[in-house]
Amino acid sequence: MHALSCENLTKRFGDTVAVDGVSLTVAPGEAYGLLGPNGAGKSTAISMIVGLLPPDSGSVHIGQIDMGAEPLEAKKRIGYVPQEIALYPELSARENLRFFGRLYGLSGAALRGRIDEVLDLVGLTDRAKDKVSTYSGGMKRRVNIGAALLHSPDLLILDEPTVGVDPQSRDSILSGVEDLLASGEISLIYTSHYMEEVERLCDRMAIIDRGRVIAEGTKAELVARVGGDDKVAVTLDGDIDSARRRIESLPQVNGVSRVGDDSLLLTAQDGRSLLPVLLGALAGEAAITSFDVDEPDLEATFLHLTGNSLRD
Protein backbone atom coordinates (compact mmCIF):
# COMPACT_ATOMS: atom_id res chain seq x y z
CA MET A 1 0.00 0.00 0.00
CA HIS A 2 1.20 3.50 -0.83
CA ALA A 3 0.85 6.59 1.33
CA LEU A 4 -0.03 8.40 -1.90
CA SER A 5 -0.86 7.14 -5.35
CA CYS A 6 -1.64 9.47 -8.27
CA GLU A 7 -2.53 8.07 -11.65
CA ASN A 8 -2.71 10.04 -14.91
CA LEU A 9 -3.64 13.36 -13.29
CA THR A 10 -4.63 15.91 -15.92
CA LYS A 11 -5.81 19.51 -15.56
CA ARG A 12 -6.57 22.06 -18.27
CA PHE A 13 -7.26 25.77 -18.02
CA GLY A 14 -8.79 26.73 -21.35
CA ASP A 15 -6.33 25.72 -24.03
CA THR A 16 -3.48 25.34 -21.53
CA VAL A 17 -2.67 21.88 -20.20
CA ALA A 18 -1.24 22.64 -16.76
CA VAL A 19 -0.81 19.00 -15.70
CA ASP A 20 -0.55 16.33 -18.35
CA GLY A 21 -0.92 12.72 -17.20
CA VAL A 22 1.14 12.87 -14.00
CA SER A 23 1.51 9.56 -12.16
CA LEU A 24 3.53 9.04 -9.00
CA THR A 25 3.56 7.05 -5.77
CA VAL A 26 4.94 7.75 -2.31
CA ALA A 27 5.65 4.85 0.04
CA PRO A 28 4.86 4.93 3.78
CA GLY A 29 7.65 6.81 5.55
CA GLU A 30 9.17 8.04 2.29
CA ALA A 31 10.20 11.64 1.54
CA TYR A 32 9.45 12.56 -2.07
CA GLY A 33 10.61 15.76 -3.76
CA LEU A 34 8.90 17.67 -6.57
CA LEU A 35 11.17 19.88 -8.66
CA GLY A 36 10.34 22.02 -11.64
CA PRO A 37 10.75 25.51 -13.12
CA ASN A 38 8.12 28.22 -12.66
CA GLY A 39 4.92 27.28 -14.44
CA ALA A 40 5.84 23.61 -14.66
CA GLY A 41 2.60 22.43 -13.03
CA LYS A 42 3.83 21.62 -9.51
CA SER A 43 1.32 23.79 -7.66
CA THR A 44 -1.57 22.59 -9.80
CA ALA A 45 -0.57 18.97 -9.15
CA ILE A 46 -0.35 19.66 -5.40
CA SER A 47 -3.79 21.32 -5.45
CA MET A 48 -5.27 18.18 -6.99
CA ILE A 49 -3.46 15.90 -4.54
CA VAL A 50 -4.85 17.76 -1.50
CA GLY A 51 -8.35 18.00 -2.98
CA LEU A 52 -8.46 21.76 -3.56
CA LEU A 53 -8.79 21.34 -7.31
CA PRO A 54 -10.67 18.50 -9.07
CA PRO A 55 -8.71 16.81 -11.86
CA ASP A 56 -10.16 16.71 -15.34
CA SER A 57 -9.09 13.08 -15.39
CA GLY A 58 -7.03 10.70 -13.30
CA SER A 59 -7.19 9.71 -9.64
CA VAL A 60 -5.63 10.39 -6.25
CA HIS A 61 -5.55 7.85 -3.42
CA ILE A 62 -4.36 8.67 0.09
CA GLY A 63 -3.58 5.21 1.38
CA GLN A 64 -6.56 3.22 0.14
CA ILE A 65 -8.95 6.17 0.18
CA ASP A 66 -10.06 7.64 -3.14
CA MET A 67 -9.92 11.45 -2.97
CA GLY A 68 -12.65 11.72 -5.61
CA ALA A 69 -15.06 9.35 -3.86
CA GLU A 70 -14.29 10.17 -0.19
CA PRO A 71 -12.68 13.63 -0.11
CA LEU A 72 -13.26 14.34 3.59
CA GLU A 73 -11.79 11.02 4.69
CA ALA A 74 -8.80 11.49 2.38
CA LYS A 75 -8.15 15.06 3.57
CA LYS A 76 -8.15 13.96 7.22
CA ARG A 77 -4.95 12.06 6.48
CA ILE A 78 -3.15 15.01 4.87
CA GLY A 79 -1.25 17.89 6.47
CA TYR A 80 -0.82 20.67 3.91
CA VAL A 81 1.49 23.68 4.25
CA PRO A 82 0.91 26.07 1.30
CA GLN A 83 3.42 28.54 -0.09
CA GLU A 84 1.59 31.48 1.47
CA ILE A 85 1.30 31.82 5.24
CA ALA A 86 -2.18 30.62 6.26
CA LEU A 87 -2.52 32.03 9.79
CA TYR A 88 -4.54 34.71 11.57
CA PRO A 89 -1.99 37.44 12.37
CA GLU A 90 -3.91 38.98 15.30
CA LEU A 91 -4.20 35.63 17.08
CA SER A 92 -1.37 34.07 19.05
CA ALA A 93 0.33 30.87 17.92
CA ARG A 94 -1.61 28.91 20.54
CA GLU A 95 -4.92 30.48 19.45
CA ASN A 96 -4.19 29.72 15.80
CA LEU A 97 -3.40 26.12 16.64
CA ARG A 98 -6.54 25.82 18.77
CA PHE A 99 -8.63 27.08 15.85
CA PHE A 100 -7.11 24.69 13.31
CA GLY A 101 -7.22 21.80 15.78
CA ARG A 102 -10.96 22.25 16.17
CA LEU A 103 -11.36 22.19 12.39
CA TYR A 104 -9.69 18.78 12.49
CA GLY A 105 -12.17 17.63 15.15
CA LEU A 106 -9.85 17.83 18.14
CA SER A 107 -11.10 19.23 21.45
CA GLY A 108 -10.56 19.31 25.19
CA ALA A 109 -7.50 17.79 26.81
CA ALA A 110 -6.51 15.98 23.62
CA LEU A 111 -6.33 19.27 21.73
CA ARG A 112 -4.45 21.06 24.52
CA GLY A 113 -1.93 18.26 24.76
CA ARG A 114 -1.42 18.14 21.02
CA ILE A 115 -0.93 21.93 20.83
CA ASP A 116 1.79 21.68 23.50
CA GLU A 117 3.50 18.88 21.56
CA VAL A 118 3.41 20.82 18.30
CA LEU A 119 4.67 24.06 19.87
CA ASP A 120 7.60 22.13 21.32
CA LEU A 121 8.23 20.44 17.97
CA VAL A 122 8.46 23.77 16.11
CA GLY A 123 10.39 25.45 18.92
CA LEU A 124 7.86 28.14 19.83
CA THR A 125 6.69 27.21 23.31
CA ASP A 126 8.16 30.38 24.81
CA ARG A 127 6.38 32.60 22.23
CA ALA A 128 3.09 30.70 22.18
CA LYS A 129 1.04 33.59 23.63
CA ASP A 130 2.43 36.28 21.31
CA LYS A 131 0.49 37.48 18.29
CA VAL A 132 1.63 35.96 15.01
CA SER A 133 1.89 39.50 13.61
CA THR A 134 4.93 40.01 15.87
CA TYR A 135 6.73 36.93 14.52
CA SER A 136 9.57 36.80 12.03
CA GLY A 137 9.00 35.12 8.67
CA GLY A 138 10.71 31.96 9.87
CA MET A 139 8.57 31.77 13.02
CA LYS A 140 5.39 32.15 10.97
CA ARG A 141 6.53 29.32 8.72
CA ARG A 142 7.10 27.11 11.75
CA VAL A 143 3.63 27.80 13.14
CA ASN A 144 2.20 27.07 9.69
CA ILE A 145 3.91 23.69 9.71
CA GLY A 146 2.69 23.08 13.25
CA ALA A 147 -0.92 23.69 12.18
CA ALA A 148 -0.56 20.99 9.52
CA LEU A 149 0.76 18.49 12.08
CA LEU A 150 -1.94 18.89 14.77
CA HIS A 151 -4.03 15.95 13.61
CA SER A 152 -1.03 13.59 13.14
CA PRO A 153 -1.45 13.18 9.36
CA ASP A 154 -0.12 10.21 7.40
CA LEU A 155 1.07 12.48 4.57
CA LEU A 156 2.67 15.91 5.04
CA ILE A 157 2.87 18.21 2.00
CA LEU A 158 5.28 21.15 2.24
CA ASP A 159 5.05 23.55 -0.71
CA GLU A 160 8.09 25.87 -0.73
CA PRO A 161 8.22 26.05 3.10
CA THR A 162 11.45 28.05 3.39
CA VAL A 163 10.75 30.87 0.93
CA GLY A 164 11.79 34.23 2.37
CA VAL A 165 13.27 32.97 5.65
CA ASP A 166 16.76 33.55 7.03
CA PRO A 167 19.39 30.75 6.96
CA GLN A 168 19.02 29.97 10.68
CA SER A 169 15.24 29.60 10.46
CA ARG A 170 15.62 27.61 7.28
CA ASP A 171 17.96 25.14 8.97
CA SER A 172 15.59 24.90 11.94
CA ILE A 173 12.69 24.04 9.63
CA LEU A 174 14.72 21.42 7.78
CA SER A 175 15.99 19.88 11.02
CA GLY A 176 12.43 19.67 12.31
CA VAL A 177 11.30 17.90 9.14
CA GLU A 178 14.23 15.48 9.44
CA ASP A 179 13.16 14.65 13.01
CA LEU A 180 9.62 13.95 11.80
CA LEU A 181 10.87 11.66 9.05
CA ALA A 182 13.16 9.80 11.45
CA SER A 183 10.09 8.49 13.28
CA GLY A 184 9.02 6.64 10.14
CA GLU A 185 5.39 7.49 10.92
CA ILE A 186 4.83 10.16 8.28
CA SER A 187 5.36 10.44 4.53
CA LEU A 188 6.41 13.68 2.87
CA ILE A 189 5.98 15.54 -0.41
CA TYR A 190 8.37 18.46 -0.58
CA THR A 191 8.53 21.12 -3.28
CA SER A 192 11.35 23.64 -3.39
CA HIS A 193 13.55 25.66 -5.72
CA TYR A 194 16.46 24.94 -3.39
CA MET A 195 18.12 21.79 -4.73
CA GLU A 196 20.15 21.27 -1.57
CA GLU A 197 16.94 21.05 0.50
CA VAL A 198 15.52 18.32 -1.70
CA GLU A 199 18.84 16.46 -1.63
CA ARG A 200 18.96 16.75 2.15
CA LEU A 201 15.43 15.52 2.84
CA CYS A 202 14.16 13.38 -0.01
CA ASP A 203 14.62 9.69 -0.77
CA ARG A 204 13.25 10.06 -4.29
CA MET A 205 12.26 12.97 -6.45
CA ALA A 206 10.52 13.85 -9.69
CA ILE A 207 11.32 16.65 -12.11
CA ILE A 208 8.18 18.16 -13.65
CA ASP A 209 8.27 20.33 -16.74
CA ARG A 210 5.43 21.58 -18.93
CA GLY A 211 2.97 19.54 -16.88
CA ARG A 212 4.73 16.20 -17.23
CA VAL A 213 7.07 14.12 -15.11
CA ILE A 214 10.20 14.04 -17.25
CA ALA A 215 12.44 12.18 -14.78
CA GLU A 216 12.03 10.35 -11.49
CA GLY A 217 14.30 8.48 -9.10
CA THR A 218 16.92 8.92 -6.42
CA LYS A 219 19.51 11.66 -6.78
CA ALA A 220 22.05 9.09 -8.00
CA GLU A 221 19.60 7.72 -10.56
CA LEU A 222 18.72 11.15 -11.91
CA VAL A 223 22.35 12.22 -12.18
CA ALA A 224 23.17 8.92 -13.91
CA ARG A 225 20.49 9.62 -16.53
CA VAL A 226 22.36 12.70 -17.63
CA GLY A 227 25.72 10.99 -17.40
CA GLY A 228 29.04 12.59 -16.68
CA ASP A 229 32.01 11.43 -14.67
CA ASP A 230 33.21 12.64 -11.33
CA LYS A 231 36.19 14.99 -11.56
CA VAL A 232 39.00 14.13 -9.15
CA ALA A 233 41.82 16.60 -8.46
CA VAL A 234 44.95 14.94 -7.07
CA THR A 235 48.10 16.69 -5.85
CA LEU A 236 51.22 14.52 -5.70
CA ASP A 237 54.67 14.57 -4.18
CA GLY A 238 56.89 12.60 -6.52
CA ASP A 239 57.47 11.89 -10.21
CA ILE A 240 54.32 13.37 -11.72
CA ASP A 241 54.82 11.94 -15.23
CA SER A 242 55.43 8.41 -13.98
CA ALA A 243 52.42 8.71 -11.68
CA ARG A 244 50.28 9.85 -14.59
CA ARG A 245 51.24 6.80 -16.66
CA ARG A 246 50.35 4.47 -13.81
CA ILE A 247 47.00 6.16 -13.23
CA GLU A 248 46.11 6.09 -16.93
CA SER A 249 46.41 2.31 -16.88
CA LEU A 250 43.79 1.90 -14.16
CA PRO A 251 40.44 0.56 -15.46
CA GLN A 252 38.52 2.76 -13.00
CA VAL A 253 39.94 5.95 -14.56
CA ASN A 254 38.46 7.32 -17.79
CA GLY A 255 40.85 10.20 -18.33
CA VAL A 256 43.88 12.00 -16.87
CA SER A 257 45.22 15.46 -17.57
CA ARG A 258 48.06 17.37 -15.95
CA VAL A 259 47.29 20.59 -14.08
CA GLY A 260 50.35 22.56 -13.04
CA ASP A 261 53.61 21.10 -11.79
CA ASP A 262 52.30 18.68 -9.18
CA SER A 263 48.59 18.02 -9.88
CA LEU A 264 46.46 15.77 -12.06
CA LEU A 265 42.79 16.00 -12.98
CA LEU A 266 41.11 12.61 -13.31
CA THR A 267 37.66 11.60 -14.57
CA ALA A 268 36.00 8.50 -13.15
CA GLN A 269 32.53 7.08 -12.58
CA ASP A 270 32.90 6.74 -8.80
CA GLY A 271 35.53 9.20 -7.66
CA ARG A 272 35.08 8.61 -3.94
CA SER A 273 36.08 4.96 -4.23
CA LEU A 274 39.25 5.85 -6.16
CA LEU A 275 41.54 6.91 -3.31
CA PRO A 276 42.55 3.43 -2.07
CA VAL A 277 43.11 2.34 -5.68
CA LEU A 278 45.43 5.28 -6.28
CA LEU A 279 47.31 4.69 -3.04
CA GLY A 280 48.02 1.13 -4.13
CA ALA A 281 48.96 2.07 -7.69
CA LEU A 282 51.33 4.84 -6.63
CA ALA A 283 53.03 3.06 -3.74
CA GLY A 284 56.76 3.78 -3.93
CA GLU A 285 56.23 6.19 -6.83
CA ALA A 286 54.45 9.26 -5.42
CA ALA A 287 52.59 10.37 -2.30
CA ILE A 288 49.11 11.88 -2.51
CA THR A 289 49.05 15.19 -0.64
CA SER A 290 45.50 16.22 -1.55
CA PHE A 291 42.47 14.47 -3.05
CA ASP A 292 39.26 16.30 -3.99
CA VAL A 293 36.14 14.89 -5.70
CA ASP A 294 33.67 17.04 -7.64
CA GLU A 295 30.52 15.02 -8.37
CA PRO A 296 27.78 15.89 -10.88
CA ASP A 297 25.00 17.54 -8.85
CA LEU A 298 21.23 17.70 -8.93
CA GLU A 299 21.17 21.32 -10.09
CA ALA A 300 23.23 20.48 -13.18
CA THR A 301 20.90 17.56 -13.88
CA PHE A 302 17.83 19.79 -13.47
CA LEU A 303 19.19 22.38 -15.91
CA HIS A 304 20.15 19.69 -18.40
CA LEU A 305 16.66 18.18 -18.38
CA THR A 306 14.60 21.38 -18.32
CA GLY A 307 16.91 23.81 -20.11
CA ASN A 308 18.25 26.96 -18.52
CA SER A 309 16.09 29.53 -20.29
CA LEU A 310 13.85 31.54 -17.95
CA ARG A 311 10.12 31.09 -18.44
CA ASP A 312 7.02 31.89 -16.37
Rank of each mutant, 00 (worst) to 15 (best):
R170T: 06
V163E: 02
D166N: 11
S242K: 15
T218I: 08
T162H: 05
A224C: 01
G176S: 10
P167I: 00
S187H: 11
E248P: 14
S249N: 12
V177A: 02
D229K: 07
K231Y: 13
I214S: 10
D230W: 10
A243T: 05
V232R: 02
D179W: 05
A215Y: 12
E160F: 12
I240L: 09
I208N: 14
E185H: 14
L222D: 08
D203W: 06
P251N: 14
S257F: 01
P167W: 04
G217M: 13
E185D: 13
R225I: 08
I157D: 05
Q168Y: 09
T218M: 09
S257I: 02
A215P: 07
E248I: 12
L174V: 15
E196R: 04
I207S: 14
V163T: 07
L156F: 02
H193N: 06
K219V: 11
Y190T: 04
T235R: 03
R258V: 12
S169M: 01
E221W: 02
V234M: 07
T235G: 03
G217P: 06
Y190S: 05
D179I: 08
V226M: 14
K219M: 08
D171W: 10
I247N: 13
R258P: 15
D209W: 03
S183Q: 02
A215Q: 11
R204M: 08
P153L: 10
I186C: 01
R204W: 04
V198N: 00
I247Y: 15
R210K: 14
I186F: 00
D171L: 11
H193G: 08
G164W: 12
G227Y: 03
S192M: 04
E197Y: 08
P167H: 00
Y190P: 00
V253F: 00
A215V: 14
S187C: 12
G255A: 09
R204C: 01
G217W: 11
I214A: 14
M195E: 05
S169F: 01
I214C: 14
E199P: 06
G176D: 07
E221Y: 07
S183L: 05
V253G: 02
G184T: 06
V163H: 02
D239S: 04
S192Y: 03
H193Y: 05
R200L: 03
G184E: 10
L250T: 09
V163Y: 01
A182C: 04
D229N: 15
Y190L: 10
S169G: 01
M195G: 02
I189L: 15
G217V: 09
D209N: 09
I247L: 13
A220W: 07
D237R: 15
I214R: 11
T191Q: 15
I240H: 05
E199F: 06
A243Q: 04
D241W: 05
N254V: 08
E216S: 12
T218L: 11
G184I: 06
V198F: 04
T162N: 03
D159L: 05
T218S: 12
T235P: 02
S187N: 14
S152Y: 11
I247R: 12
P153R: 11
S249K: 11
D159C: 04
